[in-house]
Computed example of a mutant assay.
Amino acid sequence: MSKKLSRRQFLTYTFGGTAGFLASGMLFPMVRFAIDPVLKKGAGSEYVETTMTEAEITDSPKAVKFTIHRKDGWYQPPQGEEQTAWVFKQNGKVVALSPVCKHLGCTVNWNSNPQFKDEFFCPCHFGRYYKDGRNVPGTPPAKPLDKYKTKIENGRLLIGPLEKA
């Protein structure tokens, strides 16, 4: 004995299928738009030359600006994107720290608060870091500052990609 399909069931299946087809047609481009930049390989493995010479690097952190050229999703500024790093020597090695606080992404400054000498300080929520980039226990940041890879070529400082902390 075969069961017949009622008119109501037929219309329900037809409208449901049509609605599903239209919804997938609208959702696919949105999902692709959101996921596409994540799937693309980044070109973040290049070193960028800075204006700082090896002789200018001391034991005290100095802010160094440099320009990188990268594609952010679908946008790539023609003049590049200006970045900053805190550069100093520690135990004879060149260290370049990211100025981005790991708490909420504000910018940290060296020796900017007289209450906390010889520390990086984030004014947003009183985040503090030691000179080597480690976060001070009991302050908002839960992780140390990220470090850039560095190398010296022809007497000039070159800054590479970030090494996530």
Rank of each mutant, 00 (worst) to 15 (best):
F66Q: 03
H69G: 00
R70L: 14
K71N: 12
D72T: 12
Q76K: 12
G80L: 07
G80R: 10
G80D: 10
Q83N: 12
T84Q: 14
V87F: 05
V87P: 07
Q90W: 11
G92R: 10
V95N: 11
S98W: 11
S98R: 09
V100N: 12
V100Y: 10
C106P: 07
T107I: 13
N113C: 14
P114E: 12
F116H: 15
K117L: 08
K117D: 06
F121E: 07
P123H: 07
H125V: 12
H125R: 05
G127K: 05
R128G: 03
R128W: 02
Y129N: 00
K131L: 08
D132M: 01
R134S: 15
N135L: 04
P137Y: 08
P137A: 09
G138T: 04
T139N: 08
P140L: 03
P141D: 02
A142F: 09
A142P: 04
P144H: 03
P144Y: 00
D146H: 05
K147P: 01
K147C: 10
T150D: 06
I152E: 03
I152P: 01
E153R: 13
E153N: 07
G155L: 08
L157P: 02
L157Y: 02
I159S: 01
G160H: 01
G160T: 06
G160C: 03
P161G: 15
P161D: 13
L162V: 11
